[in-house]
Design a protein around this nucleic acid. Structure first.
Lengths: 225, 225
DNA sequence: AAGTATTTTTAAAAAACTTCGAAGACTATT
DNA sequence: AATAGTCTTCGAAGTTTTTTAAAAATACTT
C-alpha cells in the first residue's frame, strides 16, 4: 500500500512542527496549514488521506472547516480526526453530527496519536477499496485495474505514467508545478530532475492524445477542465 | 438486492433517532432498542441483517449481548457493528474477538456510518453467495475438489497454486499487489519473499497457459477480464 | 526580429522488475 | 527412513520502465 498523506491544521506553529516530525518518522507524507482556510485549500489541491484538525482556531474554526469539506464531492471520503483542547462535552456533541472519525485531546501523546491515525486509516482502507476510479471527459481511469479506458479502447500505462494521469485527473483544472508532482508521485525525499515529469507527460500524450494534459508555461501542468 | 433491515441498540434516545433518520434516508428498514435485553428480543423476532450495537450500556453491555446472540443458531450469521465511546485499543480487540464485524467510534460521522454498514453488508453477501466454485472464461475452478477444469481436461493444482488462481479469479480484472496476495493466501504474519508469488504464478501459467493471469509491471498481478 | 527561457523530442544509459532454471527445505505418505 | 510431490529461495538473464542529458522546437520579451 502506498504512502499515506496527512494534512495537519493547527494555529500553533510549534505543535505543527512537532506533529510533522513524528508523522514523518512514521513514514507518512505531511502537509501543514495554519488556519482553516488554508487547510481547505491544501485539502482540495492535494487530497490527503487524513486530516488532523484543530477545533479551536481563530477566524474559521475546525467545525466550519469540516462543513466546507464535506460539501466538496472530491473530499467527502477523506478521514478526519479532531484535536480538541479538552474533552469538552459540548464540543463532543457538536462534532457528533459533523463527520469526524475520531478525536484526540490535547496535550497530545505521540504514541496515542500515531496509533489512532493508523487505526482510522486501516478502517478507511477497508471501506474504500474500490473507490479509486474516476471519469473525466471520455476517459475512465481505474486504479483498481490499473487501466485507462476510452470507449472500447484500453490503455495499459506503466506505473509512473498511470499515477501521473490519475493524480492530475483527480485535480482537473488546477495547475500543478513539477516539484509538487514529484513530491506527490515520486515521494517527498526522492530526488529526480524535473525534466522527468515532462518526459512522462509526453509519453502519456503519445498514448492518450495530447488534448488531456495542458502545459502552463513557466508553471507546470494541468488536466483539462 | 432486497431492502436490508438494521437494528440499532443504544441507550441514548437522541442518538437512536438520529441514526434511524439517516438510515431510513438511505433506504434501510430500521428497528430500535434501548437496551441489551430488548435488543436480543427484537433480534430474535425480526432477524435483522445487521445490528448496530453500543458497547457501553447500563445493565447489559454490548459484549454480553453479542455472547447471547452468537449462541442463538438462528442469529449466528447476523452482522454486528459496535459503537464505542472512543477508539480504545483494548475495547477494540475485545470486541472484534467477540464476533463483531467492525466498530465505529463516537462521535459518529453519518457518512462514515453508512459506508461502513454498506461495506459490512457487502462482505456478508459475498461470503454467503457462491463460495466454492467459480467459472471464469473457459475454466471452472472448484474449491471443493481442488480441481480446475477446462472442457474435459482436469488440472490438479497443488494447494498454494490453487488458492492463488482461485483468489485471483474471484477478483478478476483488479490488480493485486504481491503483499496483498501473500497476506491473503499465506497469512498476515507469515513472512515469505515476494518472488515466491512470481514462481507460483509461473507454475500456474505452465499448467493452465499464460493467458489467464496478467502481469502488471511494478504493481502486481491480475486475472484477465 | 533577435535573444532568452521553457518545453518537447529523441536517444541512450541506468534502474527496476519479472521470468527462468535450479536447488534445497519441507510434508505427507508409504 | 525413503520417496514423491510441494513450497520457498536464490541468482542470473531477459524485459520494460524510468531517468538523464542534450538537441530541437516553441513561446515569450524586449
Amino acid at each position: 500500500m502506498s504512502k499515506k498523506t496527512i494534512l495537519v491544521v493547527d494555529d500553533e506553529q510549534d505543535l505543527l512542527d512537532l506533529i510533522e516530525y513524528n508523522l514523518r518518522k512514521e513514514g507518512f507524507d505531511v502537509l501543514k496549514a495554519e488556519n482553516g482556510e488554508e487547510g481547505i485549500e491544501v485539502a482540495k489541491n492535494f487530497k490527503p488521506d487524513l486530516m488532523l484538525l484543530d477545533i479551536m482556531m481563530p477566524k474559521m474554526d475546525g467545525l466550519q472547516v469540516v462543513d466546507a469539506i464535506r460539501k466538496e464531492d472530491s473530499l467527502k471520503q477523506m478521514a478526519i480526526i479532531f484535536l480538541t483542547a479538552r474533552s469538552d462535552e459540548k464540543t463532543e456533541v457538536d462534532g457528533l453530527n459533523k463527520g469526524g472519525d475520531d478525536y484526540i485531546t490535547k496535550p497530545i501523546s505521540t504514541t496515542k496519536l500515531i496509533s489512532r491515525i493508523k487505526a482510522v486509516l486501516r478502517r478507511y482502507d477497508e471501506s474504500t477499496v474500490s473507490d479509486n476510479k474516476i471519469s473525466v471527459h471520455d476517459l475512465v481511469i481505474d486504479r483498481g485495474r490499473y487501466i485507462v479506458q476510452r470507449g472500447n479502447e484500453e490503455f495499459q500505462l506503466p506505473r509512473k505514467e498511470f499515477e501521473l494521469v490519475f493524480f492530475l485527473a483527480n485535480r482537473k483544472g488546477i495547475v500543478l508545478d513539477r516539484q509538487t508532482l514529484i513530491n506527490q508521485i515520486w515521494g517527498d525525499n526522492i530526488f529526480v530532475v524535473d525534466r522527468t515529469v515532462d518526459v512522462h507527460v509526453r509519453k502519456i500524450r503519445e498514448k492518450l492524445g495530447d488534448h488531456y494534459i495542458e502545459t502552463v508555461k513557466g508553471v507546470g501542468y494541468r488536466f483539462k477542465e
